[in-house]
Design a protein around this nucleic acid. Structure first.
Lengths: 232, 232
DNA sequence: CTCCATAAAATTGCATACATATGAGCGAAT
DNA sequence: ATTCGCTCATATGTATGCAATTTTATGGAG
């Protein structure tokens, strides 16, 4: 898989060589992991001291992160962790669903035999994981499956867009697999998507994927309501 | 329109306040205008001297441009103007078509009466321009029309993606309206898109928009073959 | 007590200087 | 003649210092 990602991805360097790149990755982890909560002001001096570097690579890392949507920069006012309101989150889910549905449609139209076989075996492996209720492994396989669909669309631009959206949504997706019975339901939805793609049904793949992402969003909303994750 | 853009757009500042922002805009213009040809190495010292600033804002502008796909940065090797091969250009057109088709579909599902009326009047005005063969004005109105469709999807993420793609394709779209009869044909295609949206036919809007973008791509390919624009 | 104006502090923006890696050029050995 | 390896110039990466702007604090007037 990593070869495919590397082939398509334009921006991200495989091994971050410069301090700014490493910082960018660390900051992204910190934001996604919750160390830097939404809305927090990211002071350049503080970050420089915290990571033991000067302000220059910090500034470049911030510029880089701003382009991913993780932070927001306002001239002469500093960088802020993007505060995700319920509205923007819903917008992200809708966009993700549309992009993934588009990829699925293109997969149904143009996946080659090798890609189809891989998609099928991935899906079947996930069935076993779902039966065992192996959540962590299922989540990993789920990521691979979705990436395979992005790649199967055979379009570098859509691939990058999809990867970027997924990165932004990742922190909010993590919780949803904890819902009871979610794995099995996710797998049933995948079944519809995979079947439509493998049988060459573009319209079916499109709507099946839309349904799936909508279901993920709903599962997330339930979890967030239960746990009070979102202050909407 | 500008209010709508401002409302949805996240990143771009309306008035570039910092030198890095101004530089970023200037460099983008230079690249899109042909002053910096594809594949050219963008030397930081050269740019700093050329624009009368230090390397620091130049570097920040380059980072910003890298995220738009206009240039490509390799660690310790410098920045290069992205060389658009025929393949990547085709990928851009496909992605643009899919995104625009998705927006059109969402428009058909959710445009409000005000937006519908505006879309209709924009389309009708373009009919007059096409009849007069007023190419420059038609191109402007065409941009407004497509922007109205992006906005009508009611999704900030998709809006930003669509605007970004359009920016990247802009230099290649300019020529296509010079093809004889292109305006009239473009307007007939718009007719199908607008009718489907206004009648609330999501599937029809989707496919009509896909057809339209494909037609734009074809027109561009003819022009570029005639003029030898692309060294494929 | 509230509000506004002014000034001080803090933070970002920019410039300059230094460190380090890349790649071109040259020379020697095979 | 070709290739390998070394040296050195050049360009990028990083650090630091100064300037400009924003924000906060403070003092006085209403």
């Amino acid at each position: 898989m990593s070869a495919e990602i590397k082939k398509f991805s334009q921006a991200a360097a495989p091994v971050p060589q410069t301090r700014a790149d490493r910082l960018s990755a660390s900051l992204a982890d910190g934001i996604l992991g919750g160390a830097f909560p939404a809305g927090m002001r990211l002071d350049e001096h503080m970050l420089a001291e915290r990571f033991g570097v000067s302000r220059t690579p910090v500034r470049e890392a911030l510029r880089q992160l701003a382009s991913t949507g993780l932070i927001e920069m306002r001239a002469r006012r500093g960088a802020f962790v993007t505060s995700v309101t319920g509205e923007t989150l819903a917008g992200l889910f809708v966009a993700m669903g549309e992009i993934e549905a588009t990829c699925a449609r293109l997969c149904a139209l143009g996946m080659n035999p090798v890609e189809r076989r891989r998609l099928k075996s991935l899906h079947e492996a996930m069935g076993l994981l779902a039966a065992r209720d192996a959540r962590a492994e299922y989540a990993d396989a789920n990521r691979d499956m979705h990436h395979a669909i992005y790649a199967g669309a055979h379009n570098a631009v859509l691939f990058d867009i999809a990867i970027g959206l997924r990165r932004r949504l990742d922190p909010f997706r993590r919780a949803q697999f904890r819902a009871p019975g979610r794995l099995q339901r996710s797998h049933r939805e995948h079944e519809l998507v995979a079947a439509a793609i493998l049988s060459g049904d573009p319209g079916g793949a499109h709507s099946a994927m839309l349904d799936h992402v909508h279901s993920v969003e709903t599962a997330f909303e339930r979890m967030s309501l239960d746990q009070g994750l979102l202050a909407v």
